[in-house]
Amino acid sequence: MIAQAIFYVLAVLTVGSSAIVAFSRNIVRSTFALLGAFMGVVGIYVLLAADFVAMIQLLVYVGGILVLTLFAVMLTQGIADVTISNRAVGRLPALIISAVAAGIMIFAVFRTPWRQSARIIVAPTTYGIGNAFLGPYALPFELASIVLLAALIGAVVISRPLDRGVSNRLSNEE
């Protein structure tokens, strides 16, 4: 009963914040609303007894991605100028596409007989996840670390200003 009430509160927080993120005219407000959306999802993970995933969500999304996004928002001036809707798609077709997608998904949710585990197990999930990473998911785990390393090096290369030798060569070619 009380879990149901908590679920509704978290769902309203998550959906409301997400709507602000997607539809707000003010980008700083959007970015801060992203915090509400991520925190709502953290709460739902805790409600689902997924302790490891909840903490990782808190560290990676709130502590990492959100702060990075905030930096990007603050570092780009004149960012509030772009508030108009997308020219390529148009407002009405975009809303129709989203509504149809939502309708199909919710229809599928109601049509599917969802299986529910009978008993509620409240136990740390880290043991099982750790075994999964060292057992069946060992190769994907290593690949993920290589992808992350490559992405970090790529991000450094992309966001660094051009060094003098390269820019001289570029201006000589022009």
């Binding site: 679920f7 959906v15 980008i27 739902i44 997608a101 599917t112």
Partner: peptide
């Protein structure tokens, strides 16, 4: 709550994301 509640929440969240991508022109949004 039964799984269908969470799935509907997930579907709604996903569609808000889709409409954000389709509607907005700001790359950060």
């Amino acid at each position: 709550a039964p799984p269908s509640y969470y799935m509907i929440l997930s579907a709604v969240l996903f569609c808000i994301g889709v409409s954000g991508v389709l509607l907005r022109r700001n790359v950060l949004i």
